[in-house]
Design a binder for these strands. Structure first.
Lengths: 245, 245
DNA sequence: CGTCATTTTGAGGTATTTCAACGAAGGTGG
DNA sequence: CCACCTTCGTTGAAATACCTCAAAATGACG
């Protein structure tokens, strides 16, 4: 299933410039880019990679040797359950840091869902840098904190019992993520992930996601132009639906 | 509903000693307590509080001025939804750090569910200390990372569609949390929270939690001795149930 | 020992899951 | 360029599991 694109991580080229990692961009707290010095330090220990869609970055349980920072494209973090179902823990976009580990092992598997540009940073080297640069570490801390909020929001989403409501919350979440990297119309959302991935993220069956999408269209809240382009017709209704219950 | 105990946060006494905050205890990565120096620095800026059960610490949306570290007892972080339902985002036990904020405001409300001893640390003072002590900050970073894993685990739990399975995962989670503070029998779990709180955490109705509990008893996996004491009869079955699907 | 809160148990309604078949889109090869 | 195949998405119908409403039972506490 969908393993056609599966492949292992290449060693990757070694070009410089972690350009404009908006570590902490967006959300209120101490919005700040990296200083020239910090950028230089990170560039010195990181490898820049360009990967096609569908590439496996690492597998759940593997030795966690790197942390990744996305600069372009989208990645999914997921776990394969014994039943064969695939639960998506998070979608990562530009500016997101990932590579969550526990006891030295990655807790999720990750796979690109679009062509991606990212930076791969050796964990030990990063720890070294962070030990000497409290400011940089603070930015990482804020990043992780943000990821925690996201995860809690997902838990809130999954707590809902109506499929349409979950989908509404999901669409708004993606919109917020994308508005930072796209300068385009905020009412148009390009969904880089498949319906199956959305279903895995929302803990719904593929069919229910499809039906919920149809319901949102029927209620004139959004329209799907093609399978991956969503146009919001009524932001008010969408937000109301997302907030309800 | 259960607002009998609700009250506002007292100004609190000012005794010293953040004793043995196992910042990072347990989970593999760099298990380490605070150094004497770090403990001293934190004590200097924190206020130690002893609170009864049912005390509100702060309310969702309030100005986030403090971070809290629990040393004894249990706290719940929750959000009240428009429908009147109460969704529990996390249970906090000894050693846990909480006070998650976004844009300077707390994202959850918190309330003690047992008598609690904790330390209240002003956010600005803490930020100051962390700026000068990268090692201490690293310990905080690991704490937050751990909270992120917990939240992802909750999302995984909520992704399940069977009540008994969710409850099984919950019991194992609580067991793990408690084994660090209690030296007692690991097969006996003292649940400090009500069925209603469990229902809010697992996004189930109170009745379903009750029925799921009954099912676990019927299957000889656990027994409830009193309402809050759980004895695990068959760890293997419990883990199998938690891992399944 | 009585009162209040919490928990359990019962019965019906509703949403999602599952199973199954169909339709659309993209890539490949002849 | 078209046929074929694979993947993905949509639609339909039945089964299951949870939610809601309602009432009884248990437990905590003064």
């Amino acid at each position: 299933m969908a393993k056609r694109h599966a492949a292992s991580l290449p060693s990757g080229d070694d070009s410089p410039s972690i350009r404009a990692i908006p570590l902490l961009a967006g959300n209120g707290v101490a919005t700040s880019l990296l200083t020239a010095r910090q950028r230089h330090d990170l560039e010195a220990i990181s490898t820049r990679l360009r990967l096609p869609s569908g590439m496996r970055l690492y597998h759940e349980g593997a030795d966690a040797r790197w942390v990744f920072v996305t600069t372009h494209g989208a990645v999914k973090a997921y776990r394969d359950l014994p039943s064969g179902k695939r639960q998506v823990a998070a979608f990562l976009f530009a500016g997101d840091v990932f590579g969550l580990a526990e006891s030295g092992r990655y807790v999720n598997s990750t796979q690109t869902i679009t062509p991606v540009t990212l930076h791969r940073i050796p964990l030990d080297r990063l720890a070294e840098v962070l030990r000497h640069d409290a400011e940089l570490q603070f930015k990482i801390l804020c990043k992780v904190t943000h990821a925690l909020r996201e995860s809690q929001r997902l838990a809130m989403t999954l707590g809902r019992h109506d499929a349409a409501g979950r989908l509404a919350m999901f669409l708004l979440t993606v919109q917020k993520h994308l508005e930072s990297e796209t300068t385009a119309d905020p009412d148009t959302i390009e969904l880089p992930m498949s319906r199956t991935d959305i279903a895995g993220y929302l803990a719904l069956s593929l069919e229910t996601v499809s039906r919920a999408s149809a319901e949102l269209e029927r209620r004139k809240i959004v329209t799907f132009e093609g399978k991956s382009l969503v146009r919001i017709l009524n932001v008010k209704s969408l937000r109301a639906l997302a907030a309800a219950l």
